[in-house]
């Protein structure tokens, strides 16, 4: 076990250093927080356009939300119950001149100055689909349901040496709101479509039943339940490590969880079911660099052709 863990750490360090040395990632001094070079960003843009070419025939509604969301919306999801260790709460300074002086004194004395801060109205977005649901709250869906195309930076507090485990990264998602059958069909369609898209750019992916990283021992019950019901699938491939594959896309069936919480009804009056497919854009770029090399100019004509780069 020790050896295996050690080799995994080595693989993370090796790939991360390659990316930093090549200037594709720009270090920030914090694990899992990077700037990206123009080349890296160019690959993400090209891949996103590929997704758009596959998704737009379905005529989704396109929405873009910022990486922060209403604190009240955050509390309407059960994220604080299920994944409290991953949350990001945005705090700010709201005090007067005297309080500011105290803040400065603490900062200069190298004391904990954050105790002088207060919560703002916003939280970091933990998943790209969260800001969508309040916009559909208290509504009745059309008979065919709704399909929404989303992209957002999402935050997860999980500092890691694995370059593929960033604390803030982009998810491109397609979310279906509809009947249980429509949600399932969406999940099944995109699970296959996702494999097709990723395979088309030379990535070998495998679909596995997965679970969210629920917190604590109680989280194991939730994880087991999610696995037993096969609610979450991940498409995994080798990124930093061949031995521990990395999820680059995932599809979740949320059942009526968000439909109930946000009072979204189907046309027949039942609580709406939702399902989403998400593509982890930075991870997909990292998988492409790993597979085809760090210089996209040298990728095969086939892959460049599919990505139109």
């Amino acid at each position: 076990m020790c050896g295996s863990h050690g080799s995994l750490e080595l693989a993370y360090d090796e790939y991360r250093n390659q990316l930093l040395d090549a200037g594709l990632l720009l270090g920030s001094g914090v694990s899992g927080v990077y700037g990206l070079s123009g080349t890296f960003e160019g690959v993400i843009e090209a891949f996103e356009k590929l997704i758009t070419r596959h998704g737009s025939p379905l005529n989704p509604e396109v929405m873009r939300f910022p990486p922060i969301l209403n604190r009240k919306t955050y509390l309407s999801t059960d994220h604080i119950e299920t994944m409290p260790d991953l949350m990001g709460s945005v705090h700010t300074f709201k005090g007067d001149q005297r309080a500011h002086l105290k803040l400065m004194q603490k900062k200069h004395a190298d004391e904990d100055w954050t105790t002088e801060l207060a919560p703002s109205d916003v939280m970091m977005v933990p998943a790209a689909c969260y800001p969508l649901y309040p916009t559909a709250a208290d509504s009745i869906l059309p008979e065919e349901g709704r399909l929404v195309d989303l992209r957002a930076f999402v935050f997860r507090h999980e500092p890691s040496p694995d370059p593929a485990r960033m604390q803030i990264f982009r998810q491109r998602e397609f979310v279906k709101l509809g009947t249980p059958e429509q949600a399932h069909a969406h999940r099944d369609y995109w699970l296959e479509k996702g494999q097709e898209i990723l395979t088309s750019v030379g990535l070998q992916v495998e679909a596995i039943i997965a679970n969210d990283p629920f917190f604590g021992r109680g989280g194991r019950v939730m994880a087991a339940t999610q696995q037993e019901q096969a609610l979450k699938f991940e498409l995994v491939t080798a990124v930093a490590s061949e031995e521990k594959l990395t999820a680059i896309s995932s599809s979740n069936c949320h059942l009526d969880h968000f439909g109930k919480e946000f009072n979204i009804k189907t046309s027949d009056g039942n609580d709406a079911h939702t399902a989403c497919i998400g593509f982890g854009l930075e991870r997909i770029a990292l998988a492409l660099f790993k597979k085809h090399g760090l210089d996209p100019d040298k990728w095969s004509p086939e892959v460049r052709g599919i990505l139109e780069i």
């Binding site: 059960d78 119950e81 299920t82 021992r217 109680g218 019950v221 939730m222 339940t225 999610q226």
Partner: peptide, 20 residues
Amino acid sequence: TSLATVGLMLALEDEFDIEF
């Protein structure tokens, strides 16, 4: 629900002094 199961499990552990 699976979330309620967590609360149920912890309450059972406290009541019976067990650990699942």
